[in-house]
């Protein structure tokens, strides 16, 4: 059942590549804007790189949240999902995973290239990519709650940022922190363990909270 949902969403993403590419290019543009804003001084940029890449990833992931449920909502598929005999939490988990595959994974793959723009050393690039690999699924999981709550509301897109961004803060701190710790020569294992713990906690709670939110929004 889970695979049906994921397969369908991936198929839709393949047929509508523009959506995927917009998010990715947003990510690239935001990251590339910072040197223009703060100046090309490489030492400054190297220090700021993990934070910039992570904040841009947060924003890119958040911007694509609107699409998670709204298309299904507009064409009536969401009603069918809600009325499926399969557990709604499971179906929602499928939607979250496909959201991550469609928006999160391209960000992870693009991150090392952007890191080079900021002259990050190789080891930092690896840690940055791994931290995004571990952190971006959390963004999709938590973001889904906000997307479900704001479904069909006026100005839902802006509202979702108010709801979701504060909840993203721990991921930002430990994601960017891991890279900084590794460049400073400190261990980043603790950061990764904590990110992993967040991932597990959100895997357990987010589908359930999102399912409840969808039922509320569809009433």
């Amino acid at each position: 059942m889970l695979t049906w949902v994921i397969r369908r969403d991936l198929l839709l993403a393949v047929r509508r590549q523009a959506d995927v590419l917009t998010t990715l290019f947003f990510f690239i543009i935001v990251v590339s804007l910072f040197p223009l804003g703060v100046g090309p001084e490489m030492n400054t940029l190297r220090i700021m790189a993990p934070g910039i890449v992570w904040v841009a990833a947060l924003l890119a992931s958040m911007l694509s949240l609107g699409r998670m449920f709204s298309n299904d909502y507009l064409d009536g598929t969401l009603e069918q999902i809600l009325l499926s005999p399969t557990s709604l939490s499971l179906l929602v988990l499928g939607k979250m995973l496909s959201h991550w595959l469609i928006t999160g994974v391209p960000l992870v793959l693009m991150a090392p290239v952007l890191g080079i723009q900021y002259d990050l050393p190789f080891s930092a690039l690896v840690v940055l990519t791994l931290s995004l690999l571990l952190g971006t699924p959390i963004l999709s999981l938590i973001g889904a709650i906000g997307a479900a709550l704001t479904l069909g509301l006026r100005g839902g897109g802006v509202l979702v940022s108010l709801l979701v961004l504060p909840l993203y803060i721990p991921v930002l701190i430990f994601g960017a922190g891991a890279v900084e710790a590794s460049t400073a020569g400190l261990g980043f294992e603790a950061h990764f363990s904590l990110l992993g713990a967040f991932l597990l906690v959100s895997l357990v709670f987010a589908p359930w909270a999102t399912a409840a939110s969808l039922r509320i929004s569809m009433e």
Binding site: R8, L11, T77, Q80, I81, P85
Partner: peptide, 23 residues
């Protein structure tokens, strides 16, 4: 009254997916 038919899927894909959702 909304059909739940996805514009970007073929008729067969639509039918298979909605049926799968219905169990």
């Amino acid at each position: 009254h909304l059909s739940g038919v996805k514009d970007d899927l073929t008729a067969i894909e639509n039918l298979r997916i909605t049926s799968a959702l219905a169990g």
